[in-house]
Simulated scan of single mutants.
Amino acid sequence: MVVDAREIEIPLDSQVRYVDTGTIGKVIDMKTVDDVDWVKLDKTDLWYRSKLVELLDEKDIKESSWGEAKEVNIEDIKERALDFEDVNIDANAGNGGG
């Protein structure tokens, strides 16, 4: 039985959060090596120690656009780039108060 940081059993296909970085993903695989339990997350395709993740409830899961393709407006990006062309960078800019 693979358990999370709170000693709650982690089922396959459940959503978990890696406590150090906040990475959220679905558990796609599990393994035990040298008495250490590991879970593999779909978002990163990486293995995480099960004791460093926490099982999420439905209410904890927020909609995320990570990894999803979004439509990009090239003309909007070009317009924003033009805003930076008029920037004047001076080596004599004010310094911090130190």
Rank of each mutant, 00 (worst) to 15 (best):
M1Q: 08
V2H: 10
V2W: 06
D4G: 02
D4E: 02
D4Q: 02
E9Y: 11
E9R: 14
D13C: 07
S14T: 05
Q15F: 08
V16N: 08
V16L: 05
R17P: 07
Y18V: 12
D20R: 14
D20H: 12
G25T: 02
K26V: 14
V27S: 06
D29H: 08
D29S: 12
K31A: 09
K31R: 13
K31I: 03
L41R: 01
D42P: 00
K43S: 12
Y48F: 15
Y48P: 01
R49E: 15
R49I: 06
S50E: 01
S50T: 07
E54M: 15
L56W: 02
L56G: 02
K59S: 15
K59I: 10
D60E: 11
A69H: 08
K70H: 06
V72A: 02
N73G: 00
I74N: 01
I74L: 04
D76P: 00
D76T: 11
I77P: 01
A81C: 05
A81T: 03
L82Y: 06
D83A: 05
D83S: 05
D83E: 13
E85M: 07
D86K: 14
V87R: 09
V87N: 02
V87S: 03
V87H: 01
N88S: 10
N88A: 08
I89C: 01
I89D: 02
D90H: 09
G96S: 14
